[in-house]
Each structure stands twice: as C-alpha cells, then as structure tokens.
Amino acid sequence: MKKTFFDGRSGSRRRSFLKPTEDPLWLRLFLGAVAIGFIAILLLLPLALVFKEAFANGVSALWAAIKEPDTLASVRLSLIAAGIAVPLNMVFGIAAAWCITKFDFPGKTFLVTLIDLPFSVSPVVAGLIYVLVFGAQGWFGRSLADNDIHILFAVPGIVLATIFVTFPFVARELIPLMADQGRDEEEAAATLGATGFQTFLRVTLPNIKWGLLYGVLLCNARALGEFGAVSVVSGHIRGVTNTMPLHVQLLYDNYDYAGAFTVAALLAMLALLTLALKSLLEWRYADELAAAHRR
C-alpha cells in the first residue's frame, strides 16, 4: 500500500523521515479521507440516487416514461432552445472576441464586464428582466397583446432567457485565448491581401477551434439545463412550454418520482457526457484552451 498510495519517498535509500515538502503520513491520510469523503457524500451520492430512482421500476418502465408525449415534447423544446441559443451565442462570442482582442478602443473593460454580467446575476433575475420588458405589465406588454404576439409563456421567451444566461460562455473562452495568441498571424494575412472573413476562416479559426468547441460545449450544457430563468418566463404549460428541467419539476411536484428521475437521469447523463468531453479537451488540448491555462 505504501508504494502506490500517497507515495512519499524518492530515492532507494531507506530513511525514517520525509522530504521537507511532503506531508507526514497521518496528515495525508486524514486530508485525503476528508477530501474524498466530502466529495463522495456531497456530490456522488446525489448522482447515484438519480440513477437508482430512475431505474427503480425497471428498464421497461424507464423506457415508457421517456416515450411519454409530454416528456418528448419537453425534450423537443429543450433542443429547440439550445439549437437557437448556442449557434447565436457562438457567433456573438466570435464577434466579441474578434473586436476585443484584435483591436484597441476605449471602453473595452466595460464591454468585458458587461459580457460577464449574466454570470453574476441570479437566474431568476435573468428571467425577471424579460418579464419586465415583454410581460403583460411590461414595457411592450400592451403592444404585443394588441398584435397577438406571444413572447412570454411561449417558445420565444424561453429562447430569449436561454440566450441571456448562456451567451458569456463562448466569449469568455475565446477572449483570453485569442488575446494570448496575439495579432501577428492575422496581420500577416492582412498584408498578404486576405479579407476579414478569409483571415478569420483560414488563420484564426484553426487556432481557436478547440477553445471554440470547449466554449460551445459549456454553452450547450447550460442551455439544456437552465432552470431558474426559463422557469420565470415559461408559464409551465404541460407539454407546450416546459423544457426538460421544468418537466422534471412538474413530474416531481405531482409525485411522479419515477418519471421525474427518469428525465433527470437523461439530463444527468448529458452532464456526465459534458464533463467527460470537457476533461478530454482539457487534457488533450490544454495548450489551445484558455480555461486550461487558468488551471
């Protein structure tokens, strides 16, 4: 056990003391136990519970729960919201990173702070602000109602709220990455006569492709999993305006625990897949990710 676990010795000479930078064995065992125990109880137990409850009534019951029309509708809605939000935010992230990192202009820091804003705002507040603008008593509420346009309690509102909470992800990854990479290659392309789009496609994009993928991955995970903001603007109409997380809540509140945990298990698998891809990217392409540099 001594050789591979908490390895503390180097050199083959037997000694009764450790290197000055190594913790004593009792400390290593204690801290290791605390760390592993804390993580296991706090993080792993809930995860295990989700899958245990989903399979509580057997695989066929699980399958039937997934094929419920309302569940499928929620999956469809989640995919639509993410399918619109993620590409839009990807374009935004690229545009923002391009103008912020390749040019100098006043107000850059303010812009970056603004981009970070959704990260520090409560998701409920994120939904609230759209209610204040588009809601029945909101700024545009009257004119929307007059024209029979439904933003809130309908798909557009959900998409908007999703866009708001997820737009920083791609930008936050690309900005430090492209800032690190500098402007030399793009300037060289410019002197060789390339247009903006050509420069971006042929010179910048290959350099940022892994960072872009990383940002899109996180953006997508958040888009599919967002609850608070979407909950405010959704209306919770079963089978119509419920995304997957909202459907989980609906099933749970109606005591359909097996159903709730089934949908939850689907989302949990998505989360695990995201984590796995994230780790893979961080491990394989650490040099080309700003996030890995921060580590």
């Binding site: 180097s10 050199g11 083959s12 000479r13 000694r15 290197k19 000055p20």
Partner: peptide, 8 residues
C-alpha cells in the same frame, strides 16, 4: 541541504 535524498 536535505532537500534531496542520495541513492548511496
């Protein structure tokens, strides 16, 4: 200085 251990 005791910051490394010798092999022999």
């Amino acid at each position: 200085g005791g910051l490394e251990f010798s092999d022999s």
